[in-house]
Design a protein around this nucleic acid. Structure first.
Length: 371
RNA sequence: GCUGGGGUGGUAGAGUGGUCAAUUACACUUGGCUGUAAACCAAGCGCCUUCGGGCUACGGGGGUUCGAAUCCCUCCCCCAGCA
C-alpha cells in the first residue's frame, strides 16, 4: 500500500495526500461514511459516490455475525456484492466486541489470546483473535484491514488502560507477523493506538505501533464518551510524533469542527456514524457547522431550505418545512434527504480543507475553529 | 319512537366512592446522539406557583356524602338492535 504526502502547510500539521488501494486512489484528508452491515444507511452506493464518497467503512463484527464472511467471499467480495466500486476499510471488530458483545450476565472479556464476546443477535459465545480478525476482513474483501485492538471502555481504571495498551501492542505484533505470511497484494493493514487520556500510555502505545511495519497509524479510544476537551488532549499527546510517512486515521470522529481540529493535528482519515445517524433522528449540520434539529416546531412553516448557503441536492430541491413533515411522519425519504445533506456538509468541508491546504491557506481559512 | 350500551386530558383508552390532576399508548414539545443492537434514547406534556402548595377539571345542570370521574335525578349528545 502506497501513501504519498502531496501538500503541507505552515503553522499546522495539516496535509494532503494520496493513498493507493487495490480499488483505486483516495485523496486525503478523507471522510469515510460508515456502511456497518454493507450499506450506508438509507443511501445507494451511487448516491454516496455522487456526494463525493471515495472510500467507505464496513464492520467486521456485524458482517461476521450476519451474513458471515464466507457468504460475502462466495459472492465475490463486499465491493461487488454491495455495488461499491471504490475501496473499503473494515473495522476489526474489537470495539464492537466490547460495545455490543455483552449480555445481562456475561461480559465481553479480553485474554492474551483474543477477545471473547457474545453475539447481540442470539447471545452466541464468539471469539476474535488478532489472526482471525485479519482473516475475516480479507474474506470480506477489505482494502484496508484494521488490527484487532483492546479498546478499554471510558472511563477506565489506570490498570485497565495499561492492560489495553499492552494487549493492543502484543496483538499488533502478532497481526503484522500473520500479515507477512498472507497473500495480500496491494491491501494495507493499520495498527491502532490506545491509551485513553494518559499521556504516558498514549506515547507508549504510539511507539509500540509505529515500530511495526503497518501501512497506517490509527488512533482509537477517542470519541467514546470522554468529551471534546479530553479528546483534544489525548490526541495532542501524540500528534507531533505521528510518523509523517504514513497515513493517520482518527477512528470514530466526524463532527465537522472535530474534523477541522484533527486535520490541523495531522490526521488524514476519519469515519463516523454521525452524518447518517443524526439524519435518521432529524438532526442536521448547517454550513457554519452548528447542529440543528428539523423536528423543532419553528421549522414548521420554513419554506426555505435547511441552509440557504448549502449546495446539496436536498437543499436545492426541498424546503425545511417539507423535510420536517417527512421526519415527523417517519417517512424514510426524510432520513435519506437529511443523510444526503449531512454527508454533503462533511464532504464539502473536506473539499474546502483540501483546497485550502493546497493553497497554504488552511490556518487562515479555518483558524476560527482550531482552538 | 322503543330497548340496550356509552359520553374521561390533543387522540385512543384505563379507572367505577377517598391513596386521581387521573394507568398506558400514540400525538405533541424540548434535549441528546462521534471506530452504528441507534428511523433510537431521555425529559416534559390542565392552569398558577415564593416549588411548600394553590386553583379548575372526567358531556351540562342539580342532588346524596365528611368526601364523587366513580352513587341518584334530569337534560343534551353518540352508538347498536327493533320499529
Amino acid at each position: 500500500m502506497d501513501f504519498k504526502v502531496t501538500g503541507v502547510v505552515k503553522d499546522s500539521l495539516a496535509r494532503t495526500g494520496t493513498l493507493k488501494t487495490p480499488h483505486g486512489e483516495v485523496q486525503t484528508p478523507v471522510f469515510m461514511p460508515v456502511a456497518t452491515s454493507g450499506a450506508v444507511k438509507t443511501l445507494t452506493t451511487t448516491e454516496v459516490k455522487e456526494l463525493g464518497g471515495e472510500i467507505i467503512l464496513g464492520n467486521t463484527y456485524h458482517l461476521h455475525l450476519r451474513p458471515g464472511e464466507n457468504l460475502i467471499e462466495a459472492e465475490g467480495g463486499l465491493q461487488k456484492w454491495m455495488n461499491w466500486e471504490g475501496p473499503i476499510l473494515t473495522d476489526s471488530g474489537g470495539y464492537q466486541a466490547f460495545s455490543l458483545g455483552a449480555t445481562r450476565s456475561k461480559q465481553a472479556k479480553t485474554t492474551d489470546e483474543g477477545v471473547r464476546f457474545f453475539s447481540h443477535l442470539d447471545g452466541n459465545k464468539l471469539f476474535f483473535t488478532p489472526e482471525s480478525a485479519i482473516d475475516i476482513q480479507l474474506k470480506i474483501g477489505s482494502d484496508i484491514v484494521m488490527v484487532l485492538d483492546d479498546c478499554a471502555p471510558y472511563p477506565a481504571t489506570d490498570k485497565r488502560l495499561r492492560l489495553a495498551v499492552k494487549r493492543t501492542g502484543e496483538w499488533a505484533k502478532r497481526s503484522t507477523d500473520h500479515w507477512k505470511n498472507l497473500e495480500v497484494g496491494e491491501r494495507g493493514v493499520f495498527g491502532i493506538v490506545q491509551g485513553g487520556l494518559s499521556e504516558e500510555l498514549r506515547k507508549q502505545s504510539l511507539k509500540d505501533i509505529q515500530e511495526l511495519p503497518f501501512d497506517g497509524v490509527a488512533v482509537g479510544g477517542v470519541s467514546v464518551g470522554e468529551g471534546k476537551e479530553n479528546m483534544l488532549s489525548a490526541v495532542d499527546f501524540i500528534s507531533e510524533d505521528l510518523d509523517k510517512s504514513r497515513p493517520h486515521y482518527l477512528m470514530g470522529v466526524g463532527e465537522p469542527t472535530d474534523l477541522i481540529r484533527m486535520i490541523h493535528r495531522g490526521f488524514d482519515m476519519f469515519d463516523c456514524v454521525l452524518p447518517t445517524r443524526l439524519a435518521r433522528h432529524g438532526a442536521f449540520w448547517t454550513t457554519d457547522y452548528r447542529r440543528e434539529n428539523i423536528r423543532r416546531a419553528n421549522f414548521t412553516h420554513r419554506s426555505k431550505p435547511l441552509d440557504t448557503k448549502c449546495q446539496c441536492s436536498t437543499c436545492q430541491k426541498y424546503s425545511a418545512s417539507y423535510l420536517r413533515h417527512l421526519i415527523m411522519t417517519n417517512e424514510s425519504l426524510g432520513m435519506r434527504l437529511l443523510s444526503i445533506h449531512n454527508l454533503w456538509i462533511l464532504f464539502d468541508l473536506i473539499r474546502q480543507i483540501r483546497s485550502s491546504i493546497e493553497k497554504d491557506e488552511f490556518v487562515e481559512r479555518f483558524g476560527a475553529y482550531l482552538s
